[in-house]
Computed example of a mutant assay.
Amino acid sequence: MDANEIITRYAAGERDFRGLDLRGVNLANENLRDVNLRQATLNDANLSGCDLKGANFREAKLEKVNLQGAHLELANLIGADLAHANLTEANLNEAGIRGTNLTKAILNKANIQDANLNEAVLDEAHLREANLSHSALNRCHLIEADLTLAKLEGASFANAMLTGAILTGANLAAASLSGANLDNADLGGADLSRAKLQGSTLVNAHLVQANLRGANLSWSSLRGAELRGATFYRAKLSWSNLSGADLKEAVMISASMDYVNLRNAVLTGAILPDGRTHE
């Protein structure tokens, strides 16, 4: 089926195109709201600028599809394969993306607020300046993903895999990262104020100048982490492991640090919980 036939049938009121082979089809800028493309094959298709609000792409094959600037609010992308897809500046607000494969997909500046991405795979995905505020990314894979300057306020990353991820300057205020793996992640200058990081692992992570005011890092592991100039004002660090961490000039005023492991940690110039500066 070619693009003209789909457009004609859609205009006549048809919405069910499930299971069709539409690879390479060009439907750029078309209105296809509420279309049903469940289990359809759309690899290499051009859907840029399309209005696909409420569309059903469940378990569809969308490898290398162009969805740049597409409207996918409330769309169903559960279990779809969007590896290497281009979703730059796409609107995925409240979309269902659970278990979706977005490996190496491009989602720079995409709007993905209030979406369900639980168990989705976004390894090496590009999410620079993307807005994922209040979205669910529990048990999600974001290994080596680029989330530079991403808006992640209030998002949930419980037990997510973020090893080697780039989160430089990202806004993670009030985000939940309990049990998440952030080993070797770059969180330089990130806002983690009031974030929940209980039981998380940040071994060798880069958190220079990070804002951890009021964050809960109890029972977390920050072995060898770079925390120079980080702010821990009123943070909870009880039972955490900071052995070998670089805490030069870190601010820890009023932080809870019961049973913290600071073996071989560097504290030169750090402001301690009681307000004293470590020599």
Rank of each mutant, 00 (worst) to 15 (best):
L92M: 04
A130V: 09
I97P: 08
A80E: 01
E73T: 12
A205S: 10
N43K: 07
T103S: 10
T268A: 15
G79Q: 00
D191P: 02
R228I: 14
I78A: 09
Y10R: 08
K53C: 09
G99N: 06
Q39A: 14
N43V: 07
D114M: 12
V260G: 03
N46H: 04
L22P: 05
L62G: 06
E153W: 10
W239N: 11
L217C: 08
A215K: 01
V251L: 10
A165S: 11
M257S: 06
T277G: 05
I253N: 12
L22V: 11
A75V: 13
L149S: 12
A110D: 07
L137K: 07
F232W: 00
L52T: 10
G199N: 05
A145T: 12
L197E: 00
Y10P: 10
L67K: 03
L32E: 05
S200K: 05
N4A: 15
N118P: 05
R23L: 07
L92T: 13
S256W: 12
I143E: 14
L32Y: 00
E59C: 08
G19W: 05
E63P: 06
K104V: 11
G244H: 03
N171S: 06
N43G: 08
L117C: 15
R263K: 11
L82D: 00
A83V: 09
R15W: 00
G269F: 08
N43H: 07
T148E: 15
A174G: 05
Y233I: 13
G199D: 02
L82Q: 02
S220E: 06
A125P: 13
S193V: 13
S135E: 07
H141T: 15
I7P: 07
N91V: 11
V266F: 00
T148W: 08
V266L: 07
V203Y: 02
N261K: 03
L192A: 01
I106E: 03
